[in-house]
Each structure stands twice: as C-alpha cells, then as structure tokens.
Amino acid sequence: MTVDLAPVWLSLQLATATTVILLVLGTPLAWWLARSASWLTGPIAAVVALPLVLPPTVLGFYLLVALGPHGVIGGVTSSLGWGALAFTFPGLVIGSVIYSLPFVVRPIQDAFQAIGQGPLEAAATLRASRWDRFFSVTLPLSRRGYLTAATLGFAHTMGEFGVVLMIGGNIPGATRVLSIAIYDHVEALEYSQAHLLAGGMLLFSFMVLLGLHIINKRLERIGA
C-alpha cells in the first residue's frame, strides 16, 4: 500500500500561508472592530462572521465566480497577465483566508477589548507613541488571543473541504489537499489509505488543541 503524502504537504503549506496572512490582515481589522465608535462596526462584524453560518458550498460558489476569468478578482488578475485564480493554489489561499477569517479575527478582537483603556492611557502618559503602545503593551497583553487565533485559523484551514472542492477542484500538487485526498480514497474504496490520512489528521488536531491548552495555562500562570 502506498500513500501519496503530497496532499499533506499541500495542506500544511495552505494552512501556514493562510494563517500568516490572516494574522497580518486580522490585526488592524480586529483593532478597528474593538476600538472604533463607527456605526460601520456592526455591518463589518456581521460580514466577518458570515463564514461561520454560510454553507461552504455557498461561499465556494461565489468565490468561484469571483476568481474566474470574468469575476471581480479573476478579471483583474487576468488583465494583469497572471491568469484567473480559480483552480490554482493562490486561489485556494484567498478562499481559505475568507473562510477562516472569523476564527482569527474574533479571538484577537476579544483580546484587544479585554485590555481596556487603562494600560494604554498609562503608556501614553509615560511617553509612548501610538505604535510604541501597540508593540509594548497591546501585543504582549494579547498573546493568548493571538495563540488561539493562530491555532484555530491553522486547524480550520487544514480541515476545510467544501470551499476547496468548489474553487480548487482536485488537481494533484496544486489543489489536491488532505481532505480532498481522503474523500478520493473513500470514493475509490481504498479504506486503509483513508484510515491512515484521517487518523493522522485526527491525531494532529488533538495534539494541536492539547498543546494550545497547555500553553494557555502556562501564560495564565505568569500573568499575561
């Protein structure tokens, strides 16, 4: 029995890229949602939360249309000479970023809100500028929020299926990720291969959540 491990690596790459992008994009978004008094925070928060309630196929369908050669995003990339993004790895990354957005933004936003105004105002009276306050007070006090955000974003992307199938299809080496490979093996009645991949995924997810719990406990003890 041979198991092709390429889908595992592809899933890891996708999850890593997605998590990094989400942490970078999610930080200003979470900050704005946590601090702004604008009426727009309500609608924007609802949009961010949409992937939680939408069936992945609905999200996947709209993404497919948008990323295709005549779509909003695909049209732009096509005219730039990069080609449409549907059925490509970059397309998968865009889809995953949108799909996992609430899992990353929400914990960071909660962490920002939990800090409150006090420590930041104290930092301002101690001569720290806005950026200085963010890096010396906000970020370190949000460590646990970031840890949760990164873990959830990563694990959620590893396990995604519906959106990937809709916008990526099943192209080996480009879009054939772990969850799709398992589905394929089951379709082909290759249960032992499916067992191996599914069992590995189960173990991996369990280890990630256990590790998160342990690290969180430790951070709690040192008072962060």
């Binding site: 104290a122 301002a124 500028s129 200085d132 006090l141 962060a224």
Partner: peptide, 20 residues
Amino acid sequence: LPTHRRALGYVFQEANLFPH
C-alpha cells in the same frame, strides 16, 4: 500636543501597572 509629548506624570485611581 498628544499625551505622549507632554512632560507630565499621571497617577490613576487604579494603579494601571503593566501586568506583563
């Protein structure tokens, strides 16, 4: 002048020490 450019010290009701 924004707060961080004023040469002042501020002691709040709650000490507001940085817990980290």
